[in-house]
Amino acid sequence: MRVLNYLELDSRLDRAGIGTAHDQQVKALSRAAAAGADVEVVTSPWRDGDPVGGLRGALGGRDPLVDYDVAHCNLVGPASVALARHAKYRDRPLVLHCHVTSEDFRESFRGSNTVAPALRRYLRWFYSQADLVLCPSEYTERRLADYPVEAPVRAMSNGVDLGSIAGHERLRERYRERYGIDGTAMFAVGSVFERKGLTDFCEVAKRSDHEFVWFGTVDSGPQASSTVRRWTRDPPENVTFTGWVDEKAGAFGAGDVFFFPTKVENQGLVVLEAMACGKACVLRDIPVFREYFEDGHDCLLRSTREGFAEALDSLAADETLRERLGANARETAATHSLDRVGEQLVGVYEDLLARRDATGSAGADASGNR
Rank of each mutant, 00 (worst) to 15 (best):
Q129S: 06
A185S: 14
N158C: 10
P152I: 06
I165F: 11
G180E: 15
V153M: 09
A155Y: 00
E141A: 12
G163P: 07
A166N: 07
V160W: 05
D200R: 12
L171A: 05
A205P: 13
S191L: 10
S208F: 10
E194R: 09
F201M: 08
R170Y: 00
R154I: 08
V189I: 12
G167P: 13
S137E: 08
T140V: 15
A130M: 00
R195N: 14
R170D: 05
T184F: 06
F193Y: 15
A130L: 03
M156A: 14
V189E: 11
S137N: 07
A166E: 15
M156K: 06
L171I: 03
G197Y: 00
P136Q: 07
A155C: 02
P152A: 12
G197C: 03
R195I: 08
V160F: 11
E169I: 07
F193R: 11
A185H: 00
A145M: 01
L198I: 10
G180N: 13
L144D: 03
L171P: 01
R207W: 04
L132M: 00
P136A: 05
V153Q: 07
A151V: 10
E169M: 14
E203Q: 09
P136K: 03
S164V: 13
T140W: 05
Y139C: 04
M156Y: 07
R143K: 04
V153R: 01
L134Y: 09
G167D: 14
R174E: 14
Y179M: 01
V189Q: 05
E177A: 15
S191A: 15
A130C: 07
R154Q: 06
M186E: 01
M156W: 03
C202E: 09
R176Y: 03
R142L: 14
Q129T: 01
R172C: 00
V160H: 04
V204A: 01
D182Y: 02
Y147N: 10
V153S: 07
R174A: 11
A185C: 13
Y175H: 04
L171S: 05
Q129V: 00
K196G: 05
G197M: 04
A130S: 03
I181V: 13
V204Q: 02
V133C: 02
Y179R: 01
L162C: 10
R142C: 03
I165H: 13
A188D: 08
A205W: 12
A205H: 14
K196L: 06
L144K: 04
V149E: 01
R143I: 11
L144W: 05
E203K: 08
T184A: 14
C135D: 00
F201G: 09
E203C: 11
E150G: 03
F201S: 08
H168K: 12
F193W: 14
E169Y: 03
R172M: 02
H168W: 15
R154E: 00
R143Y: 02
E173K: 13
G180C: 14
G180L: 06
E194D: 07
G163A: 13
A145Y: 03
L171E: 09
I165V: 15
Y179C: 02
S208E: 09
R143G: 00
V160M: 08
R178F: 03
R174K: 13
D182V: 15
E203L: 12
I181Q: 10
G163Y: 08
M186F: 11
A166R: 13
G159C: 06
M186I: 07
V192D: 10
L162Q: 11
R195M: 11
G197H: 10
